[in-house]
Amino acid sequence: MSIFIDENTRLIVQGITGRDGSFHTAQMMEYGTAVVAGVTPGKGGQTFEGPGGRTVPIFNTMDEAVAETGANTSVIYVPPAFAAGAILEAADAGIELIVAITEGIPVQDMARAHAFARDRGARVLGPNCPGLISPGKSKVGILPAQIVTPGPVGVISRSGTLTYEAVYQLTTAGIGQTTCVGIGGDPLIGTNFVDCLEAFAADADTKAIVMIGEIGGTDEQEAAAWVREHLDKPVVGFIAGQTAPPGRRMGHAGAIISGSAGTAEEKMQCFAENGIAVAKRPADIVGLVREAMGL
């Protein structure tokens, strides 16, 4: 099993004709993701030429694309000015999982989009996230496919390349993954650590979870409390930003220590107090996962 995406995922790519959209559509198709449609307003009726001579129909609107293809998931590679609008359109079209890759969406746009998506019962992943991959089944987003392998570990992270780093180490050590989820580096994200933990808790194949957090906000602290109260699977945690100064945004819009709140120390301590094994370095993650799983 896996969480959020699997072999039943039927994907629409919003912004399929753009540079990033077309590149990553081809990559996802290579991996075996069922890309059933693309949407770019004004390009309806055209087709996307995928790898191996496969083609994907392009529609002007999400509504048509869903009606024609029965898609249940969408991924957004739309520029920041239009990305929140793309989320609204996907939610309105009945999409269940909306993966927003776009970085730089105005935070006030996202406040409205999240409220709207919640009303429509849609899950938003991101924005400003690498997406997710269920090894051997489906990939939605930009995660590099060659670093993952199927197995028993669930991975949740606010970061992109740091996730790849951890996942690559797991894979190299022969430890595979059920699903790797990048939840995004923005201050307002649709799916947080607790949402992913709940899903992994319910997934019988996931035997252990790796959680990679960073400075800013309180999402990790809430996740730690949830782990203590609800989860009977081992969790290994890492927090980036121990050397980050307060008040400065460290790349991600959400990675900022406000006053004295949201420091790495606070989060690591909170992890430790709630029974999460804390990795001091990325290289310690594999050892702690082995230990936790009795490997």
Partner: peptide, 26 residues
């Protein structure tokens, strides 16, 4: 973001960049 140390860091990705700084300190 400028800091006060002497190891100049050039990294791809914000999370990995923070983790690299942390490892320098480690």
């Amino acid at each position: 973001v400028k800091l006060d140390g002497d190891v100049g860091c050039c990294v791809n990705g914000a999370g990995l960049a923070m983790a690299t700084m942390d490892l320098v300190k480690y």
